[in-house]
Amino acid sequence: MPKAYWVSVYRTVSDPEKLAAYGKLARLAVQPWGGRTFVRGGRVVAYDAGIAERTVLVEFDSFEQAVAARESAAYQEALAVLADGAERDFRIVEGLD
């Protein structure tokens, strides 16, 4: 079964405190679904039309787990805390088999 990934690229962060609070809750929200964070911030070099901003990559054992984590009540709580604190491009992608 192919793994799945949350890929999130932040276009802007307007409220670092909201982002920090979201980060704590989001980490707790993905753990029950087997989410493992491989990238959270750090150095970025963007090419083509890429965005050289904060990037987060979380791996799950299946696409279904990744979607369930995103739709969970715990993650919805984290999103409510983030609110307008950041603008980001978030997607769930399935890995290769």
Rank of each mutant, 00 (worst) to 15 (best):
V44C: 05
G34M: 03
Y10C: 11
F90K: 06
A66I: 11
R88I: 07
A69H: 09
L28G: 06
S8F: 03
A21N: 04
D61N: 10
L57S: 10
G95F: 02
K18Q: 13
Y22D: 06
S8W: 02
S72L: 05
E53F: 06
Q31M: 00
G85Y: 01
T12G: 14
T55R: 02
E53M: 08
S14G: 15
R11Q: 08
L19E: 10
V7M: 11
I51M: 04
A26V: 12
A69G: 15
R40C: 15
Y22S: 02
W6K: 02
E71P: 06
L79S: 03
T37Y: 01
T12P: 12
R88T: 07
S14W: 04
G23N: 08
A49S: 13
A46Y: 05
V93C: 04
R91P: 03
V13L: 05
V30T: 12
R54T: 15
L57R: 09
E77T: 02
R36C: 08
Q31K: 04
G50F: 04
E71F: 12
A66D: 14
T12M: 05
V9A: 10
S14K: 14
G50S: 08
D84F: 09
Y22R: 02
V81C: 01
F90D: 12
G95E: 04
A4F: 03
A4M: 07
R91W: 14
Q65M: 05
S14E: 11
G42C: 12
F90L: 13
R11A: 09
S8I: 14
L57P: 10
A49C: 05
E94F: 01
V45A: 04
V7L: 13
G85R: 01
S14T: 15
E71V: 07
F38I: 15
R70K: 14
R54V: 15
F38D: 15
S72R: 01
